[in-house]
Amino acid sequence: MPMQTLYFALALFLLLNLCAGMWRVLRGPSTADRMLAAQLFGTTIVAILLLLAQASGSPALRDVALVFALLAAVTAVAFVQRVWPEDRESEHDRD
């Protein structure tokens, strides 16, 4: 029984971490800071999902965590390539 409470307590702690990271999303001077906060949220949520999968005994949550880790990576790459284009892109095309 104490292990169950430890799982839920740690999941709650990680959730509080996530809410604290939300402040960086609000204040972050550049878009890169907001994207960093999103990246940290991705990892935190993967950890929470794995803990809940072990606590509630449902293996499906582990697959959700796997998909979430993949999506977090793809989101960050999409951000760097699309939302944050490089100014001197045209120079490379000329050579």
Binding site: T43, V46, R62, A69, A76, V77, V80
Partner: peptide, 24 residues
């Protein structure tokens, strides 16, 4: 495997963001 995926993804993303931030 989940941990390894997060490891590699985190490293790649960190490199990408840092390089683009430096260039910008």
């Amino acid at each position: 495997l989940i941990w390894l995926l997060v490891l590699f993804a985190g490293a790649c993303v960190a490199h990408l963001v840092a390089r683009r931030a430096l260039r910008k």
